[in-house]
Design a protein around this nucleic acid. Structure first.
Length: 719
DNA sequence: CATACGTAGG
């Protein structure tokens, strides 16, 4: 008799043995042995028992093998409530709460654990109303509750925590540490740091490690970096065990206040601990470094982590797309992740799609879209679709953005925000405002981000009164306090429309100083309207805030040039030179046949550069026939006076447009992206070109979209 | 036999 079969015989003798071995597999998460055991159990003479089979479900559930868990469950002839609960636990971990709910409803007689498990599923998704509903149902049915129940319900909440806090006290369940921990988190999430602190303090000696972690997180959420650090140090002094949660939370606190220095010091301490190469801690570090603009340091951390998990990859991809100019690396990282055997989740897609948006790469964006459709996410897809809407609109493709928006089975406030922002950036003020109305009518709550789009849509289309109405409604109707960006939009709105008295009044009465964005908007508008006095004032304020902001000098000198004040022009240029401020080189790019082609001014490096210049020559002739006059004012402040006209012809955006036109088929619309704002002369020239070649040319500059068609631009020259 | 509180990404 072979060894295996003797083993089998031995095993077949006793269900007891199966039980013990299976338990060991479950405890050790040993999937391989567990499966082997499963095979033996099926073949053995041991009569199938619900009790043993429940353990199989449990094994697969703990090893996160959902389909195996489901199959084992289905093979149970008479599942009992334990069988259901074991499967429900698996569902609650990996499936959306709705799926767990479906299973829950099939349980003939759910017990307390069934309720608790479903409640925890609701809690992870923050579905407060469902959790409360279920909670009241179970109490109605006379079911008891315990510490598990309360901590789950509490952690699903962001408001109305007080009532459950009271319930916890009156029922005596506040003796559970986890109930108090849940209270700290819930209060903090709801913005009530004081209450959270109160609970933490009243816990006294009953605090456990998690309590400290909760409180550190609370400080991080309220951007109290130093307090979080202090608490951490006290925790260490008192001898509590520090784990990866603690360390990651401290890092988040540094990140929340962008304290790179403190974060770096903490990192140095971490290296001495055993957590330096831990994936959770690594994610925290990567997030810190990439949000502080130190993407290379982030990558270094990433390389050092021992066992990268999906979140670590996601954090890295997100870091790359947060640092715009590393978007290409972000996409490479996404592919690298796939090659390493990770299945991207909804978050991976959101980050990668946002990288495609930064690049304005329609082909890669489409590819991501296709891939996202093929992957079935356990989580809902709203966030992915929201990212896709932003991507399509940043790739100049509002039609697809809107089609997607319309087809979404379920959408949220962010979906509306993305779509409205798309319209606003494209200068389609009417569409943006109509959609905003639709949003309100459908009872989606606008956020402060919604209003940035709404106000900028008004500004871009010269709707002064409507903009003012919306601005006033923010506080009065929706209880949203206007911030710096909203005031900047208002400054922009009024100044563009030439209402300078109103602008000055607004600036006088607003609750804080306009930031750099506000002053820049004012300066830009003063340049357009030739209001040199006010413009100079705005420039002075702007340069005080950002003395090395090259764009500010350029705008100022443009303003002087356009009013013929040549002395001031040279003063500004000298100032710039003295301060060592260099203009960021303008560059433009275009995707043709899935490849991105980048151009700088006077570029000679492109393989087809000769054809490009020839094409521009030809265009130049035809444009002059059609009445185009080069606007050298745009050259004066930027380039050499004498060479002005020739150099204007060779701005990066013109080169990219020319290349796009000669390398794509007739009638095909093209999209060019520029890192700075489009130059006024190019804006004018491209209008002519669009008419001459009969093509739709879209330029996405640092500010917004310009869609040129038949000799005019979608911005209506109002920019 | 099963369930909860705290972490990283958007």
């Amino acid at each position: 008799m072979s060894r295996v079969s003797s083993h089998l015989l031995e095993l077949s003798l006793s269900a007891q043995r199966f039980h013990h071995l299976l338990k060991a597999c479950i405890a050790g998460r040993d999937l391989a042995s567990g499966r082997a055991l499963h095979g033996l159990y099926v073949k053995s003479a041991v009569p199938p028992s619900t009790y043993l089979s429940n353990h199989l479900v449990l094994l697969y559930s703990k090893c996160r093998r959902l389909s195996l868990a489901r199959r084992s469950f289905d093979e149970i002839a008479q599942p009992n409530v334990f069988s259901y609960n074991a499967l429900l636990a698996a569902y609650a971990r990996d499936y959306p709460a709705d799926v767990s709910r479906c299973l829950f409803l099939q349980i003939p007689a759910p017990d307390l654990v069934s309720y608790n498990t479903l409640l925890s599923a609701y809690a992870t998704e923050g579905r407060a109303s469902e959790a409360l509903q279920l909670f009241s149902n179970m109490r109605h049915l006379g079911s008891d509750m315990d510490g598990f129940t309360l901590s789950s319900v509490i952690s699903s909440l962001t408001n109305g925590v007080d009532q459950l806090h009271w319930l916890a006290i009156s029922s005596g369940l506040d003796s559970y540490v986890s109930v108090n921990n849940a209270l700290i988190s819930a209060y903090s999430k709801g913005g009530n740091l004081d209450e959270a602190k109160q609970v933490f303090e009243e816990m006294g000696f009953s605090r456990d490690g998690v309590s400290w972690n909760c409180m550190i997180v609370a400080y991080g959420q309220h951007r109290e970096g130093p307090k979080a650090l202090n608490l951490f140090q006290e925790m260490v002094r008192r001898g509590f065990e520090v784990d990866m949660f603690t360390l990651a939370s401290v890092l988040t606190a540094f990140t929340s206040v962008k304290d790179l220095l403190g974060g770096e010091q903490f990192h140095a301490q971490l290296i001495k601990s055993a957590f330096e190469r831990n994936s959770h801690v690594g994610s925290g570090l990567i997030d810190l470094y990439s949000k502080c603009g130190r993407i290379l340091d982030a990558r270094k951390v990433f390389e050092e982590v021992d066992e990268p998990d999906l979140v670590l990859w996601n954090t890295m991809i997100s870091g790359y797309s947060l640092n715009d100019e590393f978007s290409e690396e972000g996409l490479n990282c996404f592919r690298e992740m796939q090659r390493s055997g990770f299945r991207p989740d909804d978050c991976s897609f959101v980050c990668a799609i946002s990288a495609c948006s930064n690049l304005s790469s329609p082909s890669q964006g489409k590819q991501m879209h296709a891939l996202a459709i093929k992957s079935e996410f356990p989580n809902n897809q709203i966030s992915v679709n929201n990212a896709l809407i932003a991507m399509y609109s940043k790739c100049g493709n509002l039609k697809d953005a809107h089609r997607l928006f319309k087809r979404m089975p379920e959408c949220n406030t962010v979906s509306f925000n993305s779509m409205i922002a798309g319209y606003a950036q494209h200068g389609l003020g009417n569409e943006a405002l109509v959609l905003f109305k639709e949003m309100i009518d459908s009872n989606y709550d606008p956020t402060s981000i919604t209003f940035i789009s709404v106000l900028s849509a008004c500004a871009h289309t010269g709707r002064v009164e409507e903009g003012q109405d919306h601005f006033n409604s923010m506080n009065q109707k929706y209880g949203i306090e206007p911030g710096e960006e909203h005031y900047s939009c208002m400054i922009d709105l009024l100044a563009r429309a030439g209402k300078f008295e109103e602008v000055e009044e607004l600036i006088r009465t607003m609750p804080f100083d306009p930031g750099s964005i506000g002053w820049a908007a004012l300066l830009g508008a003063c340049r357009t309207h030739g209001n040199v006095e006010l413009g100079a004032k705005a420039a002075e304020m702007l340069l005080q805030l950002e003395p090395s902001n090259a764009a500010a000098y350029v705008m100022l000198s443009n303003m002087y040039a356009s009013t013929g004040r040549w002395d001031e022009v040279s003063t500004v240029r000298k100032l710039m030179k003295d301060r060592g401020v260099r203009k960021k080189p303008g560059c433009s790019w275009i995707e043709v046949e899935k490849r991105i082609h980048v151009f700088v001014a006077d570029d000679v490096s492109h393989p087809r550069i000769k054809e490009i210049y020839e094409f521009l020559e030809e265009m130049s002739r035809k444009m002059k026939q059609a009445g185009y006059v080069p606007d050298v004012r745009w050259a004066l402040a930027r380039d050499n006076v004498i060479e002005g006209e020739t150099r204007l012809g060779h701005h990066s955006e013109k080169l990219a447009v020319a290349f796009g036109l000669i390398s794509t088929g007739e009638g095909v619309p093209i999209l060019v992206v520029k890192n700075l704002r489009i130059c006024g002369d190019c804006h004018n020239a491209i209008k002519f070109i669009s008419a001459i070649v009969g093509r739709e040319i879209t330029i996405r500059d640092a500010h917004r979209f310009h869609c040129f068609r038949e000799g005019s631009c979608s911005c209506g020259d109002y920019w």
